[in-house]
Design a binder for these strands. Structure first.
Length: 707
RNA sequence: GGCGUGGUAGCUCAGCUGGUUAGAGCGCAGCAUUCAUAAUGCUGAGGUCGAGAGUUCAAGUCUCUCCCACGCUACCA
């Protein structure tokens, strides 16, 4: 368990400022953190939550170049967009900073220098890298495009091919071109600095597997999620390697060394330091001491991230902090898995999924759109495995849980109190601890689940509390008693207890649905919630003090949630139906035109460079320890060629023997898995990625030219 | 192929260190009820806990093998 007497420094992954965030991001690193932080505040704990835009890196400069604007314009645009979307959804960061801020540059450079001066944290290496003579600068991986050596896609980047998804090194690209000048770059020597991550392996293993640091218990590894520890240990087992932390680029934080002119810190090095600089900026604006939240034993550092960031926040950044020496390490990294959208991955290019700001606009006329979304996401959080966002779930959770269960219970109580007691809390002897032990138990369970980052289950328990109220109300049925005896003690006791339960709900609900909580407070005519409200409530419960005073005048009834399925008003259902239709249209469209876009025209001369030959597969065997590779021997008349082909997922070795094929006979040989492949077999690929042979008629012999 | 995480009622999922008849919500069937947003409450049907083997007095929970899904990684000339 986390030591609750300490300070909390909470971080959420810095969003990259070159695009808007979608609901998957929200559910991964921001909404869970928001629930946790709001809970801590209600408990009166000392907590600071920071986040901000990650604004460096080559992707931003490339995007700027494509759009013909400056990188600054890009980051300003998305910094503002993301910041405001978060704010509109009630994501309550204490500070949302940005890494382009001078304070961050200074902080990162100081951090770099500190490690540099330690002497044994960095390596310096001189390597060969592509250089654009015309622009007189070295080219970052992303500044080089060329033909992907794996799939033949002509617009692959130096670090990755977006067509086949392979990770590449710029040197592998065929016909590399500089995106700056369009010309072929040359290889030239350049010097870079490397962070010696491998050096930190031993203590990292002990820290992650056992939670021990220098022999002392730092945290309990049982509190960490299984998949987090699993993935980290898997990385440690494969062995860590020094990571390059500098780049030849002009956009970024200059490396603070004389000999590093024109170089910047690699974005992954400066980004996590953004958590520190954000805290500094927060401290300046709030007259606080930032170091109290980062240094010493008095700190709980917790990173909220998606699973793609696990290694980074559990291995790389902790190593940086440890190397620096003054900082505390995270006590937990409650990484979430991924959220899918209606059964499929979010995909910007397909338009699959919905971005935060788009949701807010599309649902502009939907009351409680913020809490409706938050609640659906919470009940579907990918806490331990990937989960799925569905519009049908959205409707169900909203109508069944928020409206029918919670909203209706609150409404019943407020209506009855107004009807029977003119809106005054009836005087009655009710001690929740004794009369309703289940309520106290539920409150404790909710607390416990929140402390251990089980937000989905905590939200369910909140609903159970409301269910308990409904159940109790039904059991007593004050409306029956009241008909014959309006002065009944029983009715007063029941209503007093229900009002206390609603009061508890008005507090407990806040971390999850912060837009609704104040509405419940208003219905009860109670003060707004503030830091420590929950702690105060818990104390009252413990001391058997009523949480809402007898005689207190509550407000007039009004509905908290307008249901989506409403016989009189179909407007909300229309909004949902519109969203479903958008998705259906995407699917329909893809079905109709499920074809890859045509490539650019080429000259006839280019075509004639290809030497295509008919042939027959005469031998085939699976390449051991691969999933897709077959080693084939192809007869092309004059000679026999050995070809390695990635078709094993669709064809067994024995079935392809005798198959007529067309071979690209003059493709440069390439070694694959130690086998020299002398050519490429032409295959057709359909929309599902299934392969089929392109073959000449059976009567054709081997070695004839295809043109 | 290597590694990681999952595979529990029709659907979405809980089941923490192994221990009585395996749980919740939704859906379904029936009953009760009207204070309330055609809301609520109660009852019930429904699972050989992916498959097989093992350890144990006792396994959804530990071990091994296999199958399936997802992710990372290698490999698709």
């Amino acid at each position: 368990m986390i030591d609750t007497s300490k300070k909390y420094l909470i971080t959420s992954a810095l969003p990259y400022a070159n695009g808007p965030l979608h609901l998957g991001h929200l559910a991964g690193a921001y909404l869970p953190a928001d629930i946790y932080v709001r809970y801590l505040r209600l408990q009166g704990r000392d907590v600071v939550w920071v986040c901000g835009s990650d604004e460096h890196g080559a992707a931003i400069t490339i995007r700027a170049k494509k759009e013909g604007i400056s990188p600054k314009e890009i980051i300003d645009k998305y910094h503002e967009l993301n910041k405001s979307s978060f704010q509109r959804l009630g994501i309550s960061f204490d500070y949302y900073h940005r890494t382009s801020a001078p304070l961050h540059h200074q902080t990162s450079q100081d951090f770099f220098l500190k490690l540099y001066e330690k002497g044994d944290e960095f390596d310096e290496k001189t390597i060969e890298q592509y250089y654009d003579p015309k622009f007189d600068q070295f080219l970052a991986d992303r500044y080089i495009t060329g033909t992907c050596p794996k799939c033949g896609y002509e617009e692959a980047y130096g670090d990755q091919c977006e067509n086949c998804g392979s990770d590449l090194s710029p040197i592998e690209l065929i016909n590399p071109k500089s995106t700056l000048s369009g010309e072929t770059p040359i290889l030239k020597e350049t010097k870079h600095w490397y962070f010696k991550l491998d050096k930190h392996e031993a203590w990292l293993r002990e820290w992650i597997a056992e939670g021990k640091l220098d022999g002392q218990q730092h945290h309990d590894p049982k509190d960490w999620k299984k998949h987090v520890i699993g993935q980290c240990l898997s990385w440690l087992d494969t062995g860590l390697q020094a990571r390059s932390i500098t780049r030849d680029l002009s956009w970024g934080i200059p490396v603070p060394l004389k000999e590093a002119q024109g170089k910047v810190l690699y974005v992954w090095f400066d980004a996590p330091i953004g958590y520190i600089s954000a805290t500094k900026q927060w401290a300046i604006e709030n007259d606080q001491d930032w170091e109290a939240y980062w240094k010493g034993d008095d700190v709980n550092l917790i990173h909220f991230i998606g699973k793609d960031n696990i290694v980074f926040h559990c291995i790389v950044f902790p190593s940086m902090l440890r190397a620096h020496g003054e900082y505390a390490l995270p006590v937990n990294v409650p990484a979430n898995q991924f959220l899918n959208f209606e059964g499929q991955k979010f995909s910007k290019s397909r338009g699959w999924g919905i971005e935060q700001h788009v949701y807010l606009d599309e649902f502009a006329n939907f009351p409680n759109k913020e809490d409706a979304l938050r609640y659906t996401l919470i009940r579907n959080l990918p806490e331990n495995k990937d989960s799925d966002f569905k519009w049908d779930d959205f409707v169900d959770f909203h109508d069944k849980e928020l409206a029918d269960n919670l909203g209706n219970f609150v409404n019943r109580v407020v209506v009855l109190t107004n009807k029977y007691y003119d809106g005054k809390v009836p005087n009655a002897e009710v001690v929740l601890k004794e009369d309703h032990p289940r309520v106290i138990e539920l409150v404790a369970e909710i607390e416990r689940e929140l402390e251990r980052f089980s937000f989905k289950s905590a939200a369910q328990l909140v609903m159970e509390l409301s269910s308990y109220g409904n159940s109790y109300l039904q059991e007593v049925s004050p409306w029956k008693i009241w008909k014959t005896d309006p002065e009944s003690e029983q009715v007063a006791v029941c209503m007093n207890a229900c009002l206390q339960i609603v009061t508890i709900l008005s507090v407990l609900v806040e971390p999850f649905i912060p837009f609704t909580a104040p509405k419940i407070r208003a219905l009860l005519n109670l003060d707004e919630l503030q830091r420590g409200s929950l702690a105060g409530l818990l104390e009252q419960l413990d001391k058997a003090i009523p949480v809402i005073e007898a005689g207190h005048q509550i407000g007039e009834p009004s509905l908290l949630f307008a249901k989506i399925h409403d016989r009189k008003d179909g407007s909300r259902l229309e909004i949902i139906d519109r969203q479903k239709k958008i998705l259906q249209d995407i699917l329909d469209h893809e079905q109709k035109s499920d074809h890859v876009a045509l490539k650019d025209n080429i000259e006839f001369d280019d075509f004639t460079k290809l030497d295509l030959r008919t042939g027959t597969i005469i031998e085939a065997e699976k390449v051991p320890k691969t999933k897709k590779l077959l080693k084939l021997k192809v007869d092309i008349g004059l000679e026999q060629r050995t070809v390695v082909s990635g078709i094993a997922e669709y064809f067994k070795a024995e079935e392809v023997v005798g198959q007529k094929v067309v071979l690209v006979a003059n493709l440069a040989p390439k070694k694959l898995r130690g086998i020299m492949s002398q050519g490429m077999i032409l295959m057709a690929e359909n929309e599902k990625g299934e392969l089929g042979f392109v073959s000449p008629d059976k009567n054709w012999g081997n070695g004839f030219v295809v043109k």
